[in-house]
């Protein structure tokens, strides 16, 4: 199980703040194989979220190379990138970011809509997911009616529904209490065992150890692995 999922070659991200050029990520070199569980650590502002967003194609590197499943992301058109992204990547957020207007079922279903999957198939997939996460009873509730842990569960279910190869989680337990955190982390390691690659950004040493690999960032540079 040593297939290369993605690799970063001197990947850099800069932004212009007024007349100053600020480097958020500085020449990052990183290889991620399928089935890995990576924890990104580092203080606030060290570039964890930026790295996740760039890997997740929500943001772009401004320099260097980014290869995903052998395809050069840095030189891709938006359309193809979007296709790649829809197919292989799932996101989990600290603030869950569920759609308030949609209930649990519909929230989980949404990514499938953008993949143009038929209605009958969607139903089956969502039902499976609800079953698996033991939230069948909550399928008609709206996000506001759920606890934080439950919301994050829905968030993860939603990230998983498209059967992604890679899950990117930005402080997934940041808004949760310790019991809920443990549950979520257990779930991640379960998923990882099932073959999903996971990269999480976290402040917590406790959560970081769930990963098979810990990478420390400081001022946009990898300082320790």
């Amino acid at each position: 199980m040593n297939t290369k999922l993605l690799s970063l070659n001197e990947a850099t991200r800069t932004v212009n703040s007024g007349s100053n050029k600020v480097t958020l990520l500085d020449k990052i070199n990183l290889q991620v194989n399928e089935g890995e569980f990576i924890s990104l650590m580092g203080p606030s502002g060290s570039g964890k979220s930026t790295l996740l967003n760039c890997i997740g194609m929500l943001d772009e590197f401004t320099g260097g190379g980014y290869t995903f499943l052998g395809e050069p992301v840095h030189s891709m058109k938006e359309k193809n990138r979007s296709k790649l992204y829809k197919e292989y990547i799932g996101f989990v957020f600290q603030a869950y970011h569920l759609i308030d207007e949609l209930n649990v079922w519909e929230n989980i279903e949404t990514p499938l809509l953008y993949k143009n999957i038929k209605s009958s198939e969607r139903k089956a997939l969502v039902a499976d997911m609800l079953d698996r996460f033991n939230i069948v009873g909550k399928k008609d509730l709206f996000p506001q009616q759920l606890s934080g842990g439950q919301q994050q569960l829905v968030g993860i279910a939603r990230a998983l529904i498209g059967k992604p190869k890679l899950i990117l989680a930005d402080e997934p337990t940041g808004n949760l209490n310790s019991t809920q955190s443990t549950e979520i982390m257990e779930l991640f390691s379960q998923l990882n065992k099932e073959g999903v690659t996971i990269i999480q950004a976290t402040h917590s040493e406790q959560n970081a150890v769930y990963g098979s690999r810990i990478i420390n960032l400081l001022d946009g540079k990898i300082v320790e692995e």
């Binding site: 829809k86 970011h97 949404t110 990514p111 953008y114």
Partner: peptide, 8 residues
């Protein structure tokens, strides 16, 4: 959110 979920 919609964008991260794959909306074009």
């Amino acid at each position: 959110v919609f964008k991260t979920l794959g909306a074009r």
